[in-house]
């Protein structure tokens, strides 16, 4: 059947064929797959016949680093010639295989920032060059709360290709032209899905919203629209008493994008680079004059919550949180955004 026919968007991919598929795609793409190392699953660059783990709940590090690397050269500087050498931003085509719905949602949130006014070529080049193959969630962990936000854990139409786990195989949904083309080009791996499998997958997809142990009601986020009231709420002082200011919540957050820019000086050739930074650090807003508008932990923890739940919403129209739960899971003193939202509304 012609793949121009919109009816042919559902296919099946046997799990036993996934490695062969990756080995084939490897010839043309740089592929990132979830790999378990030392008990942690993270997206790693796939090499021929590498092992990977598709039974993960989510990666420790969010995939934002594949678009906004923890450290990235912006250009190099040749002092002798007084010349700036641009980075080659052309990359091979890339695939992220197995991105979860929460994390793919985080990319559409980050797009708003990196596309606003001056377009960020470093981020957008990678973004436009990357095909996303998503993987539905059916087994949320105790720290997941994506269903409280605009994320459907069972179904993700923002990725190019979406996989629903049917046990021995995946139901494959092609959402974009690029996704359809990839499937069309590799007919040996994808067979047409039957009615029965599609029905079963739709059932699994719709059940995915159940079984969450933490979260909040959408109306509980409305209180953050009134900055004047929420800014002076006593909870920021309380949270500041326990927060260590370590910044792990921001580094592991899939939507936190704040960065620093600095120069590295070498003898003949230096470079300018950017690297992740955190609003939880004193130095983030400390000016050379010595004036710091957010000098204490209270102001900095408030900034993190209000940037996500209030300021970002009024600037870009959505909450800058996808409920991936990484901040809850990794905070050393158990600061929990769902409990913060709950406490502000109900205590």
């Amino acid at each position: 059947m012609s793949s121009n026919n919109p009816e042919t968007k559902y296919f099946l991919l046997k799990k036993s064929k996934v490695k062969d598929l990756l080995n084939t795609l490897y010839k043309e793409f740089e592929i990132f797959v979830p790999v378990e190392e030392e008990g942690m699953v993270n997206f790693k660059r796939y090499k021929l016949n590498n092992n990977f783990n598709m039974e993960f709940t989510n990666t420790l590090l969010p995939p934002k680093g594949l678009f906004l690397p923890q450290q990235e050269t912006l250009f190099t500087i040749n002092y002798k010639k007084e010349e700036l050498i641009e980075e080659n931003l052309e990359t091979s085509r890339r695939i992220i295989f197995g991105i979860r719905p929460c994390d793919s949602r985080s990319l559409t949130i980050l797009d708003e920032v990196f596309k606003e006014k001056s377009e960020d070529v470093y981020y957008l080049q990678k973004r436009n060059n990357t095909l996303l193959i998503g993987l539905g969630c059916s087994n949320p962990q105790i720290y997941c709360f994506c269903s409280s936000l605009e994320v459907d854990p069972g179904k993700d139409s923002s990725v190019d290709i979406f996989l629903t786990d049917l046990g021995e195989k995946y139901l494959v949904t092609a959402n974009t032209k690029e996704g359809q083309q990839l499937i069309k080009d590799l007919p040996v791996y994808f067979e047409k899905a039957g009615e029965e499998e599609i029905t079963r997958a739709l059932e699994i997809q719709s059940q995915a919203r159940e079984g969450f142990s933490v979260g909040f009601a959408k109306k509980d986020t409305e209180i953050f629209r009134d900055v004047e009231i929420i800014f002076e709420h006593p909870i920021w002082e309380e949270l500041a008493e326990t927060c260590l200011g370590c910044g792990i919540c921001t580094y592991l957050c899939s939507t936190c994008h704040c960065f620093d820019i600095a120069d590295e000086l070498a003898k003949n050739e230096g470079r300018r680079f950017r690297c992740w930074d955190s609003c939880q650090f004193f130095s983030f807003t400390n000016m050379t004059s010595g004036h710091n508008p957010r000098p204490n932990r209270k102001e900095r923890i408030r900034q993190r919550f209000l940037h996500k739940l209030s300021y970002f919403v009024s600037r870009y129209g959505s909450i800058a949180c996808v409920g991936c739960g990484r901040c809850l899971r990794n905070c050393p003193v158990d600061i929990d955004i769902t409990r913060v939202i709950g406490a502000i509304n109900h205590e």
């Binding site: 920032v113 001056s118 960020d120 994008h257 704040c258 508008p293 900034q303 970002f312 600037r315």
Partner: peptide, 10 residues
């Protein structure tokens, strides 16, 4: 407007 540090409110 990308690096985030001069953010005050929205």
């Amino acid at each position: 407007g990308k690096c985030g540090r001069c953010n005050i409110g929205n």
